[in-house]
Amino acid sequence: MKAIKNIKIDQIRFTIPINESFLKDTDEPNVIKAINRYFKFKLLFDEPVIKPTGKNGYTNSILWGASEQGGLISVMYNPARVDMGVLIDFTATGKYLYESICQLNGIDVNWRNIITVIYQRFKGHATRIDVAIDLINYGYSVTSIYEKLKSGEYVFINPIKQRINFNRIQYIGRSDEINTIYVGSRYSDAYLRIYNKKLEQMNKKGIFHSLAINCNDWVRVEGEFKNRECHNIGAMVSTLSQDDIEPYLASYVNKHWKLVFNHD
């Protein structure tokens, strides 16, 4: 199998304003109808699962795709907190499921267009974007990358051209086999994971299990962006004229965590 480099949005989350200034406990924001029409949820999926629970302060959830292959797209709101807006959460599996069912129905999924509509038509914004860069059959090893970081042969450079201190780097695995490298804090606006995607898919028998079996190696570099950083990515994407947003996404990851040789 040849070397493959793939860049994509792995999962994404949006917040859209609620137009009503007040909602009763039993009310559903009107904008949810517009969301359903735009994403064609009712056309693509069976009846949603409605739950009187949510997360991150949201109390009501409409779950699409909950019964198909574990995929999940959540639309959440809190009638008592209209200022929080409506949250649309595409998990990684839910996003893949949505794209796959759209393809089966002859519907094009263009994430630049979607992000642009969220920002310009709905006046919303992205609240989380995970950018995944898959490096398949490049001969890379998470263990080797960690060892070179630990020895000082490699260093990460942050957006202001400073080295990221090694104590900001954590790992999961044994000393002789590192499965995942973490850079930064999970609670920050920008957080990096580098992990053995081949091993993950084989252990979980995930949706890319067949690819994992047939490739020699598969390292995923994944930048998780939230809050201000995520807003900036979405705002920039919404102004782009070309559909090919992958180079921009990759450059944003590289800007935050540039891996270079240490020449000191």
Rank of each mutant, 00 (worst) to 15 (best):
N105K: 08
F225S: 02
C215G: 02
A212R: 06
W257G: 00
I194Y: 01
T59Q: 10
K8Y: 07
V219H: 01
N137V: 06
L259K: 09
F122H: 09
T143A: 03
Q162L: 12
L211E: 13
R174T: 15
R193W: 07
E222Y: 01
N137T: 07
F166H: 12
V49M: 11
R128D: 04
E47Q: 08
S61N: 09
I118G: 09
L97A: 04
F39V: 02
T15F: 07
I12E: 04
T93R: 14
K198M: 10
Y187I: 08
K42M: 10
W64S: 01
D189T: 15
R168Y: 13
I172M: 10
D27V: 03
T26I: 11
I129Y: 06
A3Y: 07
N36K: 14
T127Q: 05
S61V: 06
L135Q: 12
S185P: 01
P52F: 09
I9C: 11
I178G: 00
L149I: 03
P29T: 04
I145K: 06
G65L: 04
F122Q: 08
Q201T: 07
G70T: 08
I178V: 15
I157Q: 03
N254S: 13
I129P: 00
T15V: 15
V237L: 10
N6W: 05
K95T: 01
V109L: 09
N113A: 05
F14A: 01
L72A: 02
C102I: 06
D243I: 06
T143M: 02
I181G: 01
G57D: 05
M236C: 11
L72M: 13
D244N: 15
Q162K: 15
G124A: 11
V183H: 02
T93L: 14
D244Q: 09
K148R: 15
K2T: 05
K204A: 15
Y140T: 00
M84V: 03
Q103A: 15
I145Q: 10
S210A: 13
V260W: 02
V131S: 03
K258T: 04
S21M: 07
K197L: 05
S210P: 00
Y191W: 13
L249G: 04
A34H: 12
T91S: 15
K55Q: 09
I12R: 07
Y96S: 14
R37P: 00
K95Q: 11
I133Y: 01
V109A: 03
I207N: 09
Q201M: 11
P17Q: 07
Q103V: 03
A126K: 01
I114R: 06
V131W: 00
S67W: 04
K8P: 00
I9P: 12
P159G: 10
D46G: 13
Q69L: 14
N60F: 14
V237S: 05
L44W: 09
S67R: 14
N6A: 10
N158W: 12
F208D: 15
D130S: 04
E47W: 05
R112S: 01
T143D: 10
Y154W: 09
E153D: 11
G85C: 08
F22S: 11
S175H: 12
